[in-house]
C-alpha cells in the first residue's frame, strides 16, 4: 500500500488503479456505515478518487498509513455532501461522537480484512451460487424474483442460497464476529 501510494504521487496510473480496486469495497462499506444511502456513497467515492488523482502531485509521498488517509478523506466528503435538510444538529452530533483514533483504525483494518475474506469466500462458490447470492443480498431480490429472473424454481433458489451461505459461513465467520463487536 505504501509503495502504491508513493507511486501514485509520482503519477503512476497503474498504482492508482490498484489502490482503487483494493479499497473500493471496504470504502463503500465504510461509507454506508456513515450513511445508508448507496447512491450518495457511490457519488462520494467517485469524488474521492477524482480528487485523489487530480491532486496526486501535491499529496505527501510518505504517509505512515495511507489507507486511513483514504477513509478519513471519504468521511469528510460524505459529511460535506449530506442533504442539507438532514445535516441538522442531530445527525452531525451522531457522527462527531467519534471513537479514538486507534479504535477507528482497528475498525478500518477489520473492514478491509473482512472484505478480503469475503472476496476469497465468494470465489470459492460456483458461478451460479455467486450469482444467486448477488441477487439475493447485494441486490435485495426476493426468492420469487430470483426464481423468475433465473428461470429456476423457488425451491432451487432457496437450496442454492442455503448451500452458498453454509460455505460462506465456514470461510470467515470468526472474522465477522470480531469486526461487528467493534463497530456496535
Amino acid at each position: 500500500m505504501n509503495q502504491e501510494w508513493r507511486e501514485l504521487t509520482q503519477g503512476n496510473k497503474d498504482s492508482f488503479v490498484r489502490l482503487y480496486d483494493a479499497y473500493y469495497k471496504p470504502l463503500f462499506h465504510y461509507g454506508l456505515k456513515i450513511r445508508q444511502d448507496r447512491e450518495l456513497i457511490k457519488d462520494c467515492l467517485h469524488m474521492l478518487f477524482c480528487e485523489l488523482w487530480e491532486k496526486r502531485d501535491s499529496l505527501p509521498a510518505e504517509i505512515q498509513h495511507p489507507k486511513f488517509y483514504l477513509f478519513t478523506w471519504l468521511k469528510r466528503i460524505i459529511l460535506k455532501n449530506l442533504p442539507k435538510e438532514e445535516s441538522g444538529i442531530e445527525s452531525i452530533t451522531e457522527v462527531l461522537i467519534e471513537d479514538s483514533i486507534e479504535a477507528q483504525q482497528i475498525e478500518i483494518e477489520q473492514l478491509i480484512e473482512t472484505h478480503r475474506k469475503l472476496e476469497t469466500a465468494l470465489a470459492k462458490l460456483t458461478r451460479k451460487q455467486r450469482r444467486f447470492i448477488q441477487l439475493r443480498f447485494f441486490e435485495n431480490k426476493s426468492y420469487e424474483e430470483i426464481s423468475q429472473l433465473e428461470n429456476a424454481s423457488v425451491r432451487t433458489v432457496y437450496n442454492v442460497i442455503y448451500e452458498s451461505l453454509k460455505s460462506l459461513k465456514g470461510s470467515f465467520l470468526y472474522q465477522l464476529l470480531l469486526i461487528f463487536i467493534f463497530s456496535k
Binding site: Y24, Q134, F138
Partner: peptide
C-alpha cells in the same frame, strides 16, 4: 455485510 457490499 452482504447488503453493504457493492454488486458486480
Amino acid at each position: 455485510l452482504l447488503r453493504d457490499t457493492p454488486s458486480e
